[in-house]
Structures are given as structure tokens and as C-alpha cells.
């Protein structure tokens, strides 16, 4: 009716797939699971603040970096990065004051600030309350907290091959560091 256009048909029916029982799943989904996975025991808690800083890179508030950042340790971004960030085996935190105008790849990412670009992670991506992501997320687990803003698609593929690099600009050098 009403002269509808012909829509594409599926080539073959797919076999029925049962939804995963959330309660039995070892995976993703939800703040409860996330909270449990983040619980620290006395044995795995960092020994000191100095130890914690030694294994984490900080991009401070007021810094603007243009280019690609590749790293082999955790990173906290409080400034602004335009380019790409690749931390395939580590955790990236975009702090509330931080912003990324870039594609990012990490083992896990927590966004409390703003990200405009695609996010890929082999494990968990968390958009915290107040966090804002505009782009597509591909990760094995994604958690949106109440108050998070997200616009884009989310593909939770447990077997996601995240890769180890981004098709972006050459690594940044010190000459590109600017004060915002």
C-alpha cells in the first residue's frame, strides 16, 4: 500500500539464537558486574601513590596534543588530544576535564570527559556519569552509567579482534605539544 519501495530480503534464515542469561553470563553488562570486577583486594592494591604514578602516564589539563600517542602503560588524559591513542594492553581514562577528538584503542577505557571518535577495546568501556561519547564503540563489554551521554553504535563482540594499532597519523613528537 502507498507505493512502498521494495525492501531487501534476507538470503537465508539464521538458526534461532537464545539470548544469554544475564545472571549466568560471565560477561558484560551492567554496573553490578562492573563494580564486582573493580573490587580490589588488599593484595592487588597499589603499594603507594608513587607506585601508581610510575605505571601511569598523565596528560595534564591545559595540554593539547596533536598526533598519535602509542603507549605501553595506563594513561589518564586531563587535557585534549587530537589524533589517535593506542594502548592495546592498557587502560585509558579520559578524566572529566579531558577531551579526545580522535579514534582510540585500549584494553579498557573509562570516559568521564568527552570523546568524539570511535572507541575500540578488548575488554570494558565505561562511560561514566557526565561522560560524553560521540562515535561507534566496539568492545567486549560496555557500561553506560546514569547521566552518561552517548551517540553512535555499540557493538559488543566478545571475540572482537581489536588489533594493536590505529590507522592514524605518525606518533607525536615533542614539537607538537602545545599549551591549550
Amino acid at each position: 500500500m502507498f507505493g512502498k519501495k521494495q525492501q531487501p530480503k534476507r538470503s537465508e534464515p539464521v538458526p534461532p539464537a537464545q539470548p544469554v542469561n544475564k545472571a549466568e553470563s560471565s560477561g558484560p553488562l551492567g554496573a553490578d558486574t562492573e563494580a564486582e570486577s573493580h573490587q580490589q583486594t588488599p593484595t592487588d592494591r597499589p603499594q603507594s601513590r608513587a607506585f601508581e604514578r610510575a605505571s601511569t602516564s598523565f596528560i595534564g589539563e591545559g595540554l593539547l596534543i596533536e598526533g598519535t600517542i602509542e603507549g605501553a602503560e595506563d594513561m589518564v588524559v586531563e587535557g585534549r588530544v587530537v589524533g589517535g591513542i593506542s594502548l592495546p594492553d592498557h587502560h585509558l581514562t579520559v578524566a572529566a576535564a579531558g577531551s579526545l577528538d580522535t579514534e582510540l584503542l585500549a584494553a579498557a577505557a573509562t570516559v568521564e570527559g568527552c570523546v568524539i571518535g570511535d572507541v575500540r577495546a578488548s575488554d570494558l568501556v565505561t562511560i561514566a556519569a557526565g561522560g560524553d561519547v560521540q562515535g561507534d564503540i566496539r568492545a567486549s563489554r560496555v557500561a553506560l552509567e546514569d547521566g552518561a551521554r552517548f551517540k553512535g553504535s555499540i557493538d559488543m563482540d566478545a571475540g572482537a579482534a581489536v588489533g594493536s594499532s590505529l590507522p592514524v597519523e605518525p606518533p607525536v613528537d615533542a614539537a607538537h605539544l602545545k599549551t591549550a
Binding site: 539470548p19 544469554v20 542469561n21 544475564k22 553470563s25 558484560p28 553488562l29 551492567g30 554496573a31 562511560i127 560496555v142 557500561a143 553506560l144 552509567e145 546514569d146 552518561a148 551521554r149 552517548f150 551517540k151 555499540i154 559488543m156
Partner: peptide, 12 residues
């Protein structure tokens, strides 16, 4: 906009 419970449910 992205809603946590909707995402959690659909991801199953």
C-alpha cells in the same frame, strides 16, 4: 540517547 538498561538487555 544511550540508555544503560536498554543496552544491557539488548546485548544479551
Amino acid at each position: 540517547g544511550g540508555v544503560a538498561s536498554t543496552l544491557d538487555f539488548l546485548s544479551a
